[in-house]
Amino acid sequence: MNKLLITACAAALMLPASASAMDMHKDKTKTESSAAVSSEAGIYLAKTSLSAKELLGEGIYGVKGDRIARIDDIVLDANGKADKVVFLSGGVFGFGGTRGALDYKAMTIAYENDYEPVVSVSLSEEGVKSAVEYETTQMNDYSLVSEIIGSKVDLVDGADEDDDAVINDIILSEAGTVEHLIVQESALGSIGAGTKYAVPYSKLTVAQGDGGLVLDMTEEQLEASPVFKASWREQAGADIKKTWEKTKDGASDLKDDVENEIDD
Rank of each mutant, 00 (worst) to 15 (best):
T177K: 15
A175H: 07
L56M: 12
D66S: 15
G176C: 01
D164S: 10
T98D: 15
E126G: 03
E161L: 12
I74K: 00
I43R: 10
G97D: 05
S124V: 08
H180R: 14
R70H: 08
S151N: 10
S120P: 02
D73K: 04
E179N: 11
S120N: 09
D72A: 14
L102Y: 07
I60C: 04
D141I: 01
V118N: 05
M107Y: 00
G158D: 11
S49I: 04
V92H: 09
E112L: 07
V132I: 10
N113I: 08
K84I: 02
A165M: 07
E179C: 01
D83V: 10
A159Y: 11
A110G: 15
K105D: 10
T98I: 09
G59F: 01
L144G: 02
L181M: 07
E116V: 11
I71A: 00
A131Y: 03
G100K: 08
G176H: 02
V92D: 13
L181S: 08
E185D: 15
A82C: 11
S122V: 12
A131C: 09
L55Y: 01
S120C: 07
G90P: 02
E116A: 15
Q138D: 06
E185L: 14
G65D: 09
D141K: 00
V166Q: 04
V183F: 10
G150H: 08
V128N: 07
N113Y: 11
D83I: 01
E58D: 12
I109C: 00
N113W: 06
G127Q: 09
G65I: 07
A52Q: 01
I68T: 08
E185M: 15
K129N: 15
G90T: 05
E126C: 00
A82Y: 11
I170V: 14
G96H: 08
V153E: 00
Y61Q: 06
E54N: 06
V156E: 14
S49H: 02
S124N: 06
A159W: 04
Y142G: 02
I60Q: 12
I43H: 06
E126Q: 13
T177F: 14
A46W: 01
S146K: 13
E174W: 06
G158A: 14
